[in-house]
Design a protein around this nucleic acid. Structure first.
Length: 425
RNA sequence: GGAGAGGUGGCAGAGCGGUUGAAUGCAACGGUCUUGAAAACCGUCGAGGGUUGACGCCCUCCCAGGGUUCGAAUCCCUGCCUCUCCGCCA
């Protein structure tokens, strides 16, 4: 959520910045509601004040043994007037809140203008795109030849966009997870964290998935529980309603969780293979930091995710998302895109974002600033480090051999019992 | 699933329906003292919001949401959560 004070004082400027990402701010409506809010709030508080002082004097009179009936008659209508005023105020505030919760974050000035991923800005590339002296297959063919990926079985068990993994491929998937967790905990200073895979709606409001993106989520019937679309939700919500001391920052968490996404509106996109699944595993990096540090931390955090790709020797590029591709809560996002020989192009494997105080305001996530002595909003960031399923895809495709086997990246071999390659049975 | 107890400030822990946003203790912060530190003593010390040029004034919040009342941390209802015992279970 944006700062309501800023929406009052700099409404047109905010609207201009939001227009960069194609969001039309209803400025007239906001101005109208804010004017109503102001007068209603003043009136309500005056009535409350009157109630308080009169009630206190009744208390005093009663204690003094005086007749309080005349005083009671005086306040007879006050309660009703107050109730009306409070109800009106609440209505206006709810209307404002509804608008405010639907406003995306402001894009940082360094974010390029654009409408979709075509306009994302490439920052750098790493690694050499592999050349094959045979026609490279995609992970579906490779995985099926290895008897390691079974999409038909998953379709039977559940439906489309799920996968069953077997044998060495399943182990490779697990190895990737362990490897990522180990690197982030031992080399990058993150604290390993285990969280629920279901969260309540408060948590989803906190990180910004609700109220706008309910259709992307799996909701458990007759409950307030949702399957998490990313570990970002439970992990970032650790700081909800918390005031951290300065020496507790930065907080760095790494969590491995499955992620569940309905992929509503993705009909027909990436239907083949495990690029786009309803359930996939991800190792997520989350940080809560001092405001002045967040942009530096974004660079570091992106580097932490890149380190995994580098250790796995997977070629990738880094792009800055343009205003039109930016996520709802993010002020700036770097995507890491890994090279997939089966598709002959780069595909997103990590998304690293700085949310500034946007999530923190919804979460009431604060820290005590020693300079002011006051609780102030902190900044939150997160990034995939990495999406495990897509990393498996990238390993299978980039390390495939002419004979249908797949070499195991050096860094993963300790996690694979020393196995150097996996071959079709 | 059954029975009971409870949710108050960073923590601990009081709080007859009436100047209680909340005693007290600890912690924290500032000061005195000290060569320095500790101890002792003095003081400050919850959060959010409205209004104001400013000093200030005002409002809200004692798990959440309703209700009773002139007045609710205190009474009533509902929900959530925690704890204890029994049952069941990985």
């Amino acid at each position: 959520m944006l700062d309501p004070k800023r929406l009052r004082t700099e409404l047109d400027e905010v609207a201009r910045q939001l227009a960069r990402r194609g969001f039309i701010l209803p400025t007239d409506r906001i101005r109208e509601l804010e004017a109503q809010r102001k007068s209603l709030q003043v009136r309500t508080q005056e009535l409350q004040s009157e109630r308080n002082t009169r009630s206190k004097s009744i208390g005093r009179a009663k204690a003094a043994g005086e007749d309080i009936q005349p005083l009671l008659d005086e306040v007879a209508s006050l309660g009703d007037r107050l109730k009306v005023a409070e109800a009106e105020l609440e209505e206006v505030q709810a209307a404002l809140q509804q608008i405010y919760l639907g406003i995306p974050n402001l894009p940082d000035t360094s974010v390029p203008d654009g409408s979709d991923e075509e306009d994302n800005r490439e920052e750098r590339t790493w690694g050499d795109i592999p050349r094959f002296d045979f026609e490279p297959k995609d992970h579906v063919d490779i995985g099926e030849a290895l008897s390691g990926l079974d999409f038909d079985a998953a379709a039977k068990l559940t439906g489309s966009r799920f996968v069953v993994m077997h044998g060495p491929v399943a182990r490779l998937h697990r190895a990737l997870t362990q490897f990522m967790l180990d690197v982030h905990t031992s080399e990058h200073g993150y604290r390993e964290t285990y969280v629920p895979y279901m969260v309540n709606s408060d948590s989803l409001y906190g990180t910004g998935q609700l109220p706008k993106f309910a259709e992307d989520l799996f909701h458990l019937e007759d409950t307030d529980y949702y399957l998490i679309p990313t570990a970002e939700v439970p992990v970032t919500n650790l700081v909800r309603d918390v005031i951290l001391e300065a020496d507790q920052l930065p907080c760095r968490w790494v969590a491995h969780t499955p992620c569940f996404r309905s992929e509503a509106g993705a009909y027909g996109r990436d239907t083949r293979g495990m690029i786009r699944q309803h359930q996939f595993d991800k190792v997520e990096l989350v940080q809560a930091v001092r405001p002045e540090e967040s942009f530096d931390v974004l660079e570091q955090l992106t580097g932490h995710a890149e380190a995994i790709l580098q250790k796995l020797e997977l070629p990738y590029r880094v792009v800055t998302l343009c205003t039109g591709d930016l996520g709802f809560s993010s002020a700036k996002t770097y995507d890491l895109e890994v090279w997939l020989p089966g598709q002959g192009r780069y595909r997103e494997i990590s998304s690293c974002s700085n949310f500034l105080d946007f999530q923190a305001r919804r979460l009431k996530a604060r820290w005590r600033n020693p300079e002011t002595g006051r609780p102030e909003l902190l900044h939150t960031l997160n990034g995939s480090g990495l999406a495990v399923g897509r990393t498996l895809v990238a390993v299978l495709e980039n390390y495939q051999q002419a004979d249908g086997s797949v070499a195991i990246p050096e860094a993963l071999r300790p996690y694979m019992g020393g196995v150097e390659r996996i071959s079709p049975p």
